[in-house]
């Protein structure tokens, strides 16, 4: 059973890009289907209906609650699946579904590959960001986060373009965030600022899916920057550091990279994210000796 689960997980992470692309195509297919009046799916990542199953972005349910001070059962039902996923896997939505992240990752590929710095995760900052967004919403008096929710904006950009054949200036927001974030700010958006991720991460279970680092197996440089996993992380984190959450969105890229080295990074349901052995130095030496012997 355990084996099966881990196999399925690894399959899931191996096919991540495919799922991301699928998610983008889905956003194009929805308006096309609706142009044919098929009515099987409607919406985008603000709110989605697939056949009879409703999905709502928890951020928008929260804004609705804040602005209207009313509980809405339909919304509650709609956020249950997204929250369940967040509970189990944190910001899996960001790494698997969000079209903004896909675009950002693609853009990163074109830009210079070598990273020169990583970010330390400061958990308190995340509370500050989320609370900041909430205060902004309340002050604005309408769901202003509509403009900064990138997955939704991309969805409505495609939807409006295909379904109504119109474009609006608010779509420039996507370009602006994308450009500034990826080119100058090293993905600070997905790592820290995005209100969607900020909220989702709040629901991450202590025992949920996390990156797990086993120092003993690590065969790479201890240098912060030089390790292949670090170079691979799309959001400029060091997977070997602690804490990794709430910044990490569980894309599993570092794990995939590590597969070719020490297999020191795993993604699994676990409480502690790192596994420091006291005799780290010793293990390292042993390994070098073994290697030399071989």
């Amino acid at each position: 059973m355990g084996l099966k689960k881990s196999k399925m997980l690894s399959l899931l992470f191996r096919k991540r890009r495919l799922i991301q692309i699928g998610s983008l195509i889905f956003l194009i297919v929805i308006p096309l289907l609706n142009l044919l009046n098929l009515e099987v799916v409607t919406g985008n990542y603000y709110s989605l209906r697939i056949w009879k199953i409703e999905f709502v972005d928890p951020l928008f349910a929260l804004q609705h609650l804040l602005l209207t001070l009313k509980f809405n059962w339909q919304l509650l039902m709609g956020i249950s699946i997204p929250l369940l996923i967040a509970f189990l896997g944190g910001k899996l939505f960001c790494s698997f579904i969000c079209p903004y992240n896909l675009l950002a990752e693609w853009l990163q590929k074109i830009l210079p590959a070598k990273k020169t710095n990583v970010f330390k995760v400061n958990a308190k900052r995340y509370w500050a960001v989320l609370i900041g967004w909430i205060i902004l919403t309340v002050i604005a008096g309408f769901p202003i986060l509509y403009f900064v929710s990138m997955p939704g904006q991309i969805g409505v950009f495609l939807g409006d373009l295909i379904f109504l054949k119109v474009m609006g200036v608010e779509s420039l927001m996507i370009l602006a965030v994308l450009g500034i974030d990826v080119v100058f700010l090293k993905r600070i958006w997905c790592r820290e600022l995005c209100p969607v991720g900020a909220l989702l991460q709040r629901f991450h279970w202590n025992y949920g899916l996390k990156i797990n680092y086993n120092e003993i197996d690590c065969v790479c440089s201890t240098d912060e920057i030089d390790s292949p996993c670090v170079q691979r992380c799309p959001v400029y984190l060091n997977p070997k550091s602690d804490p990794l959450y709430p910044a990490c969105f569980n894309c599993g890229e570092c794990v995939k990279e590590c597969y070719y080295y020490g297999e020191a990074l795993k993604i699994k349901f676990i409480k502690d994210i790192t596994n420091f052995e006291p005799n780290f130095k010793q293990r390292k030496e042993e390994q070098t000796i073994n290697k030399e012997e071989a």
């Binding site: 929805i30 308006p31 609706n34 009515e39 409607t42 919406g43 985008n44 603000y46 709110s47 209906r49 709502v56 972005d57 928008f60 804004q63 609705h64 602005l67 209207t68 008096g141 309408f142 769901p143 509509y146 939704g152 409505v156 939807g159 409006d160 379904f163 109504l164």
Partner: peptide, 12 residues
């Protein structure tokens, strides 16, 4: 305040 700009009404 209530509308979350999701366009589901638009598309249906």
């Amino acid at each position: 305040q209530h509308c979350i700009r999701c366009r589901r009404c638009v598309e249906i």
